[in-house]
């Protein structure tokens, strides 16, 4: 029996051939914003659906000088974020950080950091279902054709149905967007509050879907428009409260149940944003 130890793995786990394949897919995705590039995902030591796409994209991007931040639900200390960060510490030995401004590569699930991103950063999204048309049309062969021919009528039919039934577009997260006027893409299940941050972003945004074997991307400064109707425009929204820790009225909030009497409080979902603000307030007060 010959079982390799963790030390025997290549830098960032994947072998160089595989990383080269991934980088080709990433470059192609960057060249055609919003287009889903097929790639051959590898089995990773974490399950499909738990971020294998993001992990592979991060692994292909990382160099030893990088400083990695991993968030899940906006927080650095959620279990899956901890697990993925530990994975890269172990197999790549890169420095890690919880501070958004210090990170060069940020892997995320479900959120875009509140702190504006910069030109030298890469934001890697974990994507469960990369096909925005999937729940309207289950067949891959058909949805690829719809993208190729720009047949997006059905997407708007879905939005129409929402308004007809609910009076507004009843999508709260994974709100579909149009990338650079050509491809309808999913921003992954981020709350629609985060959608405006997708557009004209200075950072590179990469979206990896491991199980579905697709990578799509937004190069810096790409124009990203959330789909809507002229008379029912897209609106980013969040809980109408201020964070009880740092007092921010601008950040996306988690609702925390505090007792079984219906008591609840609202706190920033972005833990780094929140602690940076409250630290500044404390040092300002002192």
């Amino acid at each position: 029996m010959n079982v390799a130890s963790a030390d025997n793995y290549n830098f960032a786990y994947l072998d160089e051939q595989t990383k080269r394949m991934l980088r080709r897919a990433i470059l192609k995705a960057l060249a055609v914003p919003g287009y889903q590039v097929p790639f051959a995902p590898r089995e990773m030591p974490m399950p499909y659906g738990w971020g294998t796409g993001g992990v592979q994209v991060s692994a292909a991007c990382l160099v030893p000088e990088d400083r990695l931040k991993v968030i899940d639900q906006g927080a650095d200390d959620t279990t899956n974020a901890v697990s993925i960060r530990k994975f890269f510490q172990r197999v790549a030995g890169v420095a890690t950080t919880e501070t958004t401004t210090e990170a060069t590569v940020i892997q995320t699930r479900h959120r875009i950091p509140e702190t504006p991103l910069k030109e030298d950063q890469i934001l890697v999204y974990q994507v469960p279902i990369p096909e925005p048309l999937r729940f309207l049309e289950p067949r891959e062969t058909e949805t690829r054709r719809m993208h190729a021919l720009e047949e997006y009528g059905l997407m708007h039919v879905k939005l129409y149905e929402d308004i007809a039934r609910h009076g507004e577009i009843a999508t709260a997260y994974a709100w579909p967007v149009m990338a650079e006027g050509r491809y309808v893409m999913t921003p992954s299940p981020i709350p629609k509050f985060d959608n405006p941050k997708l557009s004209d972003c200075p950072a590179i945004q990469l979206f990896g879907a491991g199980r579905e074997a697709r990578i799509h991307a937004l190069p810096p400064w790409t124009k990203v428009v959330s789909l809507d109707f002229e008379d029912h425009p897209f609106q980013a929204s969040k809980a109408d409260h201020a964070c009880e820790i740092c007092g921010s009225c601008e950040s996306y909030l988690d609702e925390v149940i505090t007792d079984d009497q219906g008591g609840r409080m609202f706190v920033c979902s972005d833990t780094d944003f929140c602690s940076t603000r409250s630290n500044a307030q404390q040092s300002g007060a002192a």
């Binding site: 659906g49 479900h110 469960p128 997260y173 609702e255």
Partner: peptide
């Protein structure tokens, strides 16, 4: 089954950010 079980079981991961926005909606 590795793809299937992974994706199935990932619903155990926290989804509270998305759930929060659904809740508000």
């Amino acid at each position: 089954n590795i793809q299937a079980t992974g994706f199935l079981e990932h619903i155990k991961l926290p989804h509270y950010v998305d759930f929060q926005s659904e809740l508000e909606l």
